[in-house]
Computed example of a mutant assay.
Amino acid sequence: MNDTEFHTLIDEQLNAIEEQLDEIDADIDYEMMAGILTIDFADGSKVIINRQEPVHQLWLATRKNGYHFNYVDGAWLDDRTGENFLDIFNNACSEQAGEPIKIR
């Protein structure tokens, strides 16, 4: 994957998350700045998503852990477990919001 493809994939993912966060009734605030999406929850915790251009990875920081994802066969997969980004992201957001969060 070249840098242009990487940026396109990351931008598509972050834009999709932003659009869907706007539709959620949960007590969530978010901000996109310099390619970093920060989601703030009512309990003071955060979820942070950013791009790591040198290694072409999507990184996710949650209250419990940090994750690195590679783009494989059309999906962002954790480089340690192979879990899908959206599964980990939704579980973390649901836990931190105290209610179900489902981003597609």
Rank of each mutant, 00 (worst) to 15 (best):
D40Q: 12
Y67V: 01
N2D: 15
D78Q: 10
P100H: 11
E53L: 03
I39H: 06
N2L: 10
I28S: 11
W76S: 06
D29S: 13
G66F: 04
V55M: 04
P54Q: 01
N91E: 15
K46V: 05
A16N: 13
D79I: 11
R51F: 01
I39D: 03
N15L: 09
I103K: 07
L58D: 00
Q96L: 15
E23G: 05
S94Q: 05
D27A: 13
Y30K: 11
A97W: 06
N65S: 13
V55R: 11
D40R: 13
Y30T: 07
F69Q: 01
L58T: 02
Y71K: 01
D27L: 10
Q13M: 12
E23N: 11
I36L: 13
Y71M: 03
A34V: 04
D79Y: 07
G74T: 04
D25R: 08
I36P: 04
E18A: 08
M32R: 15
N2C: 09
E12R: 14
S45A: 01
S45H: 09
L60K: 02
F41D: 05
G98E: 12
I10N: 00
R104G: 14
V72F: 04
R63D: 12
D40S: 15
A61T: 06
A42S: 15
L9S: 04
G35N: 04
C93E: 09
Y30E: 05
A34C: 02
E83C: 05
P100V: 12
D22K: 14
D40W: 10
Q20L: 01
E99C: 14
T8L: 00
A16M: 13
E12A: 07
Y67A: 06
N84G: 02
E18F: 03
N65L: 03
L60C: 08
M33V: 14
A75I: 07
S94W: 08
D25A: 14
F89V: 10
I17P: 06
D22N: 13
N2Q: 06
A75N: 12
N91Q: 15
W59P: 11
E53N: 09
H68R: 10
Q13E: 13
F41M: 11
N91I: 11
Y67M: 08
L86G: 03
L21V: 01
K46S: 00
I10Q: 01
A61K: 11
D43N: 15
T38V: 11
D3V: 05
K102Q: 14
P54R: 09
G82V: 08
H68I: 02
G66P: 03
G82L: 04
L14H: 03
M33T: 14
H68Y: 01
A92F: 12
G74L: 08
